[in-house]
C-alpha cells in the first residue's frame, strides 16, 4: 500500500508536468518548445539509429569509473584523516580552498594535462567525487563511538583490527551519504564537461543540438538526463541499503 501510494504520487506528478508541457506547446512555436510527443518520436528515432544509447553508455562509463575511483580513494583518505588528527589538521585547509574551485573550470586544464581522450573526463569526475567522499567519510571516522573502540580493545583487538572491524563499519553510513552526494555532483560535472570538450555523451548531444538549433534533440537529452540521474540515484540508494542493512544506513 505504501509503495503503491508513492508510485501513484510519482505518476501523478509526472503526468501533471507532461500536461503542462503539452499545454505550453500551443503558445510557443516548436523551434522553442517541441511537444512531448515530438520529443518522444525523436527519442525513438535516435534510439533506433543507436545514437542515443551510445551517448548514454559513454556518459555512464565516464561517471561510473570516475566516481568509483573517487569512492575508493576518498574512503581511504577520509578514514585516515578522520582517525589521525594531525593528518586532518594538515589536509583540511587545502581541502577548504579546493572546495571552491568548481570542477567545470578545470576541464581545459585537465585536457592539457591528460589529453582529449577519456582520461581527462574520468580525472575530472574523480576530482568531483573525491572531495565529497573524503569530507563525509572523515566526519564519520572522527565520530566513531569511543566506547565501541574501547570495547574492542578490551576484547583483545589490535590497532589494525580495531580499524577494520570497528572504525570502518561504524563509518559506513557516512561513506554511503558521501557516495550518493558525489554521484549527483559527478552527473552535473560530466554533462558540463561533455558540452565543452567531447565528441560523445549526453552533454555533447545538448551542445551539438544547440549549435544547429535542433531543439527536439535537446529535449530528448534533457529527459534522458533526468531519467539517468533518477535511476542511478535510486539504484545506489537501494543497493547500499540492501548491502548494509545492519549498518544503520539512512
Amino acid at each position: 500500500m505504501r509503495i503503491g501510494g508513492v508510485f501513484a504520487i510519482y505518476t501523478l506528478s509526472v503526468a501533471i508536468f507532461l500536461v503542462a508541457w503539452w499545454g505550453f506547446t500551443f503558445v510557443f512555436p516548436p523551434i522553442f518548445l517541441p511537444s512531448p510527443l515530438t520529443t518522444m518520436r525523436k527519442a525513438v528515432e535516435i534510439t533506433r539509429t543507436g545514437e542515443l544509447p551510445w551517448n548514454i553508455v559513454m556518459s555512464l562509463f565516464r561517471v561510473l569509473s570516475g566516481w568509483a575511483l573517487g569512492a575508493v580513494v576518498g574512503s581511504f583518505l577520509g578514514v585516515v584523516m578522520g582517525r589521525l588528527p594531525w593528518v586532518r589538521a594538515l589536509a583540511l585547509p587545502v581541502l577548504e580552498y579546493f572546495r571552491f574551485v568548481p570542477p567545470v573550470t578545470l576541464v581545459t586544464l585537465f585536457i592539457i594535462w591528460f589529453g582529449f581522450g577519456e582520461e581527462s573526463k574520468i580525472v575530472l569526475i574523480f576530482y568531483t567525487a573525491v572531495f565529497i567522499v573524503v569530507v563525509n567519510t572523515m566526519a564519520g571516522a572522527a565520530s566513531v563511538r569511543e566506547g565501541a573502540i574501547r570495547a574492542a580493545r578490551s576484547l583483545g583487538a589490535t590497532g589494525t583490527q580495531v580499524l577494520f572491524r570497528v572504525v570502518v563499519p561504524e563509518t559506513v553510513p557516512y561513506m554511503v551519504t558521501g557516495l550518493q552526494l558525489a554521484l549527483s555532483n559527478a552527473f552535473m560535472t560530466i554533462v558540463a564537461a561533455e558540452m565543452l570538450a567531447a565528441k560523445s555523451g549526453v552533454g555533447f548531444m545538448i551542445w551539438d543540438a544547440q549549435i544547429y538549433t535542433k531543439t527536439e534533440r535537446m529535449f530528448v537529452a534533457f529527459v534522458t538526463l533526468s531519467l539517468m540521474g533518477f535511476c542511478l540515484d535510486r539504484s545506489v540508494h537501494a543497493l547500499s541499503r540492501r548491502m548494509f542493512v545492519h549498518y544503520r544506513v539512512v
Binding site: G147, A148, R150, A151, S154, R165, V166, H246, Y247
Partner: peptide, 12 residues
C-alpha cells in the same frame, strides 16, 4: 572484561 552502561555492542 568490561561491561559498559551503553552496551557498545557491534550493531552490524
Amino acid at each position: 572484561g568490561v561491561v559498559f552502561q551503553e552496551h557498545f555492542l557491534f550493531h552490524w
